[in-house]
Design a protein around this nucleic acid. Structure first.
Lengths: 142, 142
DNA sequence: GAAAAAGTGGCGAAAAGTGGGGAAAAGTGG
DNA sequence: CCACTTTTCCCCACTTTTCGCCACTTTTTC
């Protein structure tokens, strides 16, 4: 299970070190794509495929279906961890997430989120002050 | 699986470089044809045939069916990747998609879309802002 | 406090993308 | 049917980007 938070730098080539603790579970090909709230999602092959299969099954005749497929697939990029334990984040994804200097890397159980460090800080302090309120909105669902 | 987005140029002979990442899966004869929303679809033999079969199965008695068949089949062109990894986009297809200078090449899982760079940019920012709306229209389908 | 591991930066080789020239093929007109 | 024009396509060369590798710094662990 992916847990915890890390702050790493992004170098001039868009490379980010993956937390060492996560690496054994992230061998082989991974998928990075746009996530909600302007962060990036990092999937393993196993967690990506069911999503991709559903999108492929959508009818081509439907405009919403086409655009949803475009949204997800066009933003997705396969990445691999290099010998130093880093992944390259493509330009367009860094732009989407507003990533310039530092990033926050967040373990979320089955998947990983990558945030611009500042955006994360803002959200995190917000969450911190409102955990009780947030969870009460979901009362009964968990 | 074809994933990601690329921006390439079209030279004076109508040639476009196919993203290197896609090439191993694109050996042999490919099919380019008109796609929805003024883009071009690029199919492998494998992904073309199910589509062709669906079109052929449409009832000849229906005028829309006849014209859709005409639209797709008459516009379709077989192309091959040359030694430099490029394909030639025929004039009439470039005109259809409004392709002048640069193109965006989009992986969509089983097939590839080729857009005029500007048209894609417009659609993409539109999609980006409306992903939530779009996906809610399809609630329950994916 | 030393050794190991994690993170960071940068250089050089290799690959990807682009442009153009020339031969072959296709099309056109006499 | 031949000669000429035009188009297509194959190949070479150049530029830019990417990626693997090495080395250094910082942090952690024993």
């Amino acid at each position: 299970m992916f847990l915890g938070r890390f702050e790493h730098s992004v170098d001039s080539k868009g490379r980010v070190a993956v937390p060492a603790r996560f690496r054994d579970r992230l061998s082989g090909e991974l998928i990075v794509t746009r996530g909600n709230d302007r962060c990036l999602y990092l999937f393993t092959q196993a967690s990506w495929e069911p999503l991709a299969a559903k999108l492929n099954a959508l009818p081509t005749g439907d405009a919403d279906a086409r655009n949803l497929r475009r949204a997800v697939f066009s933003a997705a990029e396969p990445v691999e961890i290099d010998k130093q334990g880093r992944v390259v984040l493509p330009d367009h994804l860094r732009q989407y997430a507003g990533i310039t200097g530092n990033v926050a890397i967040i373990g979320l159980g089955d998947y990983i989120e990558i945030w611009d460090q500042e955006s994360w800080q803002t959200l995190d302090s917000n969450i911190e002050q409102n955990v009780d309120v947030i969870s009460s909105h979901l009362a009964g669902q968990y």
